[in-house]
Design a binder for these strands. Structure first.
Length: 414
DNA sequence: TGTGCCGGGCG
DNA sequence: CGCCCGGCACA
């Protein structure tokens, strides 16, 4: 899919990404690449998009078509998420987003996906309960088994419904835009309404079909993400947000961390299982953080971490048609959204494309400023706890190499 | 005062 | 290039 479907532009981007990024195991690669690509793409997008030409637009169409095709296969997830979202995310809706729009879609998408809602509606194809159901059960069961030892077993039921839903929708989304709930809500609301506007705008560049396709495919992504996240992080769900947000301190990062590195590669191959392996138990917190950590490390090694945040922020910002400047800071984290990464499916690549393309325009502007700022000043300093604080001087050997060398921490990136 | 990390030195 | 550390900026 990736290679074939991608437009030349995308291909270039990918290549860049590949080049920048460190090579990984083939198995792991598929998953990790997606994430990497995303990051890279978003970061690099600026250039390609800036010089967009009509030809490129055509390419977009093609891409959109490709996406649509791929999507047709994986629309399943939609229906289930919606239900859940309604039940769980009701609060969100209640706040104001609910209105006439399709609440479920909004809530489910959480943030940037919300505008995809229209597509959801438009697409009558929501008949893929089997898949969703499958995805849920199979994943979870194994995960539970894998976790095995702990109390996880009993908790599962609750997790499936509540946590799962929360994980799927609330968790992933909130994280990204942790900034202010209000802002988020606004964004979502606007997004719900906006979709049309956006579509119209895009229609200029590409046909309505194009926009729809992109939206759809966005949607798919989300679902995938949510599923994967839920599967992997099911236990984590409640805590996971903490990762992004500084407030919640890591309870017992050490154990999880030590385990993670080893399991890291194997986990990826298994995809959904990852989280479980990490430390499926209720402590999940540590597990998610560990996952992030791992990814971060790679990113760091491959390229400057700074670029990533900006890109993410962009995506998020773009998602909300009504962009609020204040969000910037919060968005920086959003790129972490890579939680999606876990899902790593054929679909994701396509999504990255569409994603980048659509948003790139809007994003490009945003992305550049942050970078410059960081570059100029001394990088402001990471606020989160670094290896030193987390592990302490005693366990210096547990620090990431960067910390050991008094360099920018590569494990706990900001 | 403690922490994060840049800049630079050593092998 | 890996490793380490002086020293600055910041909280």
């Amino acid at each position: 899919m990736e290679g074939g479907c991608l437009s030349p532009e995308a291909a270039e981007e990918q290549r860049l990404a590949d080049g920048k990024r460190v090579n990984r195991d083939p198995d792991t690669r598929s998953v990790s690449l997606l994430e990497q690509k995303r990051k890279v793409v978003s970061s690099s997008i600026d250039v390609p998009h800036a010089r967009r030409s009509e030809e490129e637009v055509d390419m977009d169409k093609v891409t959109a078509a490709m996406v649509l095709t791929s999507l047709s296969t994986s629309p399943l997830v939609r229906s289930p998420p919606v239900k859940v979202s309604e039940g769980l995310s009701g609060s969100w809706k209640d706040n104001g987003s609910a209105g006439p729009f399709t609440p479920s879609s909004n809530s489910s998408s959480g943030g940037y996906w919300s505008w995809s809602a229209p597509s959801d509606q438009s697409n009558p194809s929501t008949p893929s309960p089997p898949l969703s159901a499958d995805s849920f059960k199979p994943f979870r069961v194994p995960s539970l088994g894998g976790v095995g030892p702990g109390p996880a077993g009993p908790e599962d039921p609750s997790l499936d419904e509540q946590d799962g839903s929360s994980l799927l929708f609330d968790e992933p989304i909130p994280r990204k835009r942790k900034v202010s709930a209000l802002n988020q809500l606004k964004c979502w609301d606007s997004s719900a309404v906006v979709p049309r506007h956006i579509t119209d705008h895009f229609s200029r560049n590409c046909d309505s079909d194009c926009s729809d396709g992109e939206e759809d495919f966005y949607y798919t992504e989300i679902k995938l993400n949510t599923d994967s996240v839920a599967d992997g992080l099911s236990s984590l769900s409640p805590v996971s947000p903490s990762i992004l947000s500084p407030p919640p301190p890591p309870p017992s990062p050490l154990p999880s961390l030590s385990q993670l590195p080893d399991s890291h590669r194997p986990q990826q191959s298994s995809d959904t299982k990852e989280p479980h392996a990490g430390g499926a138990t209720p402590l999940s917190r540590s597990a998610p953080s560990a996952l992030y950590l791992i990814h971060t490390d790679h990113a760091y090694q491959a390229t400057a971490p700074v670029s990533i945040p900006s890109s993410t922020s962009n995506s998020a910002g773009s998602a909300c048609t009504s962009f609020t400047p204040t969000n910037n800071s919060s968005f920086s984290i959003s790129w972490q959204s890579p939680p999606v990464t876990f899902t790593g499916n054929t679909v994701s690549p396509s999504k990255s494309q569409g994603f980048g393309e659509q948003r790139s325009q809007t994003i490009a502007v945003l992305s550049s400023p942050p970078r410059a700022t960081t570059a100029l000043s001394r990088k402001v300093r990471g606020e989160g706890k670094k290896c030193r604080k987390v592990y302490g001087m005693e366990n210096r050997d547990m620090w990431c190499t960067a910390c050991r060398w008094k360099k920018a921490c590569q494990r706990f990136t900001d």
